[in-house]
């Protein structure tokens, strides 16, 4: 399911102009990361996908739907959304009920709900915690619950706002596996992240925002090469890219294994 955003402008009620004309197309199956400085408009942009915000002007299309003509509930069939703060989206008594809530409200049949919930708990490794209250879990695990509850809705597009914040190395690897698994099943994955290393190692395309605008958009290897443009929006190059540059490599690398390969060949 393609996403088309055209000339999107958005002003908050207090007058803050958060998006100043954003145009991006995201085809089915894309693996896209959005990066950029605090306040650049990343969260504001993706909140237009699920209808939480409506364009001041411009157009947002999800498949053949114009978001202006669709309710948040309808859009939930197409867009799964994991908030920056997981506490904004958890309200059930147990983890399992929380994960069941989404597919139930989409009106899926019981068998399908059961299968989806099982798969979501499996991927997020929440099985053991299924009967606990989400609020008794640590913040890091609450984020997993939010993620599971979205996976269970089986939407063609999944949006994650800062999935790795506060997560330890093991959880970040788990999130990588989830991203790859969604990508493997043909879904579109869009993640906002400040973790540029995670972004470079797990995504294919990078959109860079600054002050309400998209300033770079392209394949990872091209975007990570743009040191100055990234720095202008407070983003650094990946650690591996910086290392390779200091050593005078002529090719752009951003993954540890690629670094070793280039080192070996030189």
């Amino acid at each position: 399911m393609n996403i088309e955003i055209k000339e999107l402008v958005f002003a908050y009620p207090n007058g803050v102009l958060a998006l100043e004309g954003v145009t991006v197309g995201i085809p089915t199956g894309s693996l896209v990361a959005i990066v950029g400085q605090n306040g650049a408009g990343k969260t504001t942009l993706v909140k237009h996908l699920n209808g939480l915000l409506r364009p001041t002007s411009g157009l947002v299309q999800i498949g053949d739907w114009d978001t202006r003509q669709r309710s948040v509930a309808e859009l939930a069939n197409r867009i799964g959304f994991i908030f920056q703060n997981p506490d904004d989206q958890l309200f059930c008594r147990t983890v399992k009920e929380e994960v069941q809530f989404g597919p139930r409200s989409l009106g899926f049949e019981n068998d399908r709900i059961e299968t989806l919930v099982e798969a979501a708990l499996e991927l997020t490794e929440l099985h053991e915690k299924a009967s606990q209250n989400p609020y008794d879990l640590s913040p890091a695990w609450r984020k997993m619950v939010a993620l599971a509850s979205i996976l269970a809705m089986d939407t063609p597009i999944v949006v994650m706002d800062e999935p790795t914040t506060g997560q330890d190395a093991v959880s970040i690897e788990r999130i990588s596996r989830i991203v790859q698994s969604l990508h493997g099943s043909g879904k579109t994955v869009i993640a906002i992240t400040h973790d540029i290393d995670f972004c470079a190692e797990n995504f294919e395309r990078m959109i860079v925002m600054r002050q309400g605008m998209v300033v770079l958009d392209g394949p990872i290897q091209e975007v990570v090469a743009e040191r100055e443009m990234l720095a202008s929006t407070y983003v650094e190059q990946p650690q591996i890219t910086r290392l390779a540059k200091r050593l005078g490599f002529s090719t752009i690398v951003y993954k540890p294994d690629d670094f070793i390969r280039v080192l070996h060949d030189s």
Binding site: Q37, N38, Q84, E162, T165, H194, Y234, V235, E236
Partner: peptide
């Protein structure tokens, strides 16, 4: 974890 939500150069 005072920089968990901050952009890289901001952190």
């Amino acid at each position: 974890e005072p920089t968990s939500q901050l952009d890289p150069i901001g952190s």
